[in-house]
């Protein structure tokens, strides 16, 4: 298997917390403690990835995470400053069209529902907020879910069904949906032994991958609305695992960790996962986030505390 560095993206002035591909696969967004979001594009003449746009002055503190709407016209960003910003693409220019306030303190993650009608945010105040788009540029808080007992690290909408998964410093993963006009938690997965940093669904949405401070990656399978753990992948990282990404095109899973390495797993037989490759020293510091390109299945983006984002060619 080839695991080659395709591009190193320099420009951020502090640690880079997250990278996320737009659904077209042609733009990569990154966000950082330097309070900027950068958009990276491949230039037409030389194929090199370079910074195409800087979205700045939207936040007072670290931008922790970002998420693209499915149509690619909006980018949501959340910050330690307790606000979420919505950026809109208006004929090639990106403007901050909205600022959502409500959380008590640091927001850790933001996620668009596949329809683009709902937005979820979560944070250190232990809550998950569901925002409903009333009009083009108007959101209203539809619900505040208070199921977690600690800092909520990550949220992710199911790719097809109207429910949401969240994971937390309280070591659990929880599923919430709208029941009798209000959103609440209806299932909890509590096998991880420490903070669950990230979760991701596969393309069809019948599997979920999670990663944790307990240095394991777990795969969960849904059967009639009930999720059970079908695999625990341990021994491949020796520091906290900060992110996982399940490729919608190749079905490969990638994990990134505080040991500066990236590991790629494959389902070799039904419900049986094996490590394909473990790449060490991908960054000189912790790797904070990874994202599979949704169109070009060989491209994987990563970013780290070294202030860099990188694009890898994996075949």
């Amino acid at each position: 298997m080839i695991f080659d560095l395709s591009s190193t993206l320099t420009g951020h002035k502090d640690r880079v917390w997250a990278v996320k591909w737009r659904h077209c696969g042609k733009i990569l967004a990154s966000c950082s403690s330097d309070k900027d979001i950068r958009l990276w594009k491949q230039s037409q003449n030389d194929d090199n990835w370079s910074c195409d746009y800087v979205l700045s002055e939207g936040h007072q503190r670290t931008i922790r995470n970002i998420d693209w709407s499915d149509d690619g016209n909006y980018l949501a960003a959340c910050s330690f400053d307790a606000t979420t910003s919505i950026w809109e693409n208006k004929s090639g220019k990106w403007d901050c069209s909205l600022n959502l306030e409500g959380h008590e303190n640091e927001i850790k993650c933001v996620s668009w529902s596949p329809s683009g009608k709902l937005l979820a945010t979560c944070g250190r105040d232990k809550t998950v907020w569901i925002w409903e788009r009333i009009e083009e540029n108007e959101f209203e808080c539809a619900s505040v879910i208070t199921a977690h007992s600690q800092d909520v690290k990550r949220i992710k909408w199911h790719p097809k069904e109207p429910f949401i998964a969240s994971c937390s410093y309280d070591n659990t993963i929880r599923f919430s949906k709208e029941i009798n006009d209000d959103w609440s938690c209806y299932q909890t997965l509590d096998l991880h032994e420490s903070t669950v940093w990230a979760i991701d669904f596969n393309a069809t949405g019948d599997r979920l991958v999670s990663c944790s401070d307990d240095k394991t990656v777990r795969i969960w399978k849904a059967a009639e609305d009930k999720w059970t753990c079908i695999a625990t992948l341990s021994g491949y990282h020796n520091r906290p695992i900060y992110d996982v990404s399940w490729s919608p095109t190749s079905n490969l899973i990638a994990s990134a960790a505080g040991d500066n390495s990236i590991v790629i797993y494959k389902e070799t037989q039904p419900d049986f996962f094996e490590v394909l490759i473990r790449k060490e020293k991908t960054h000189t510091c912790d790797v904070n986030s990874i994202s599979w390109n949704p169109v070009k299945s060989n491209l994987l983006a990563s970013c780290g505390d070294d202030g860099l984002a990188k694009i890898w060619d994996i075949k």
Partner: peptide, 15 residues
């Protein structure tokens, strides 16, 4: 120990 080891919370605290 869990709090001191959580880089995200440490980063937020230092802001």
């Amino acid at each position: 120990n869990k709090q001191l080891n959580d880089k995200e919370r440490v980063a937020a605290a230092l802001e």
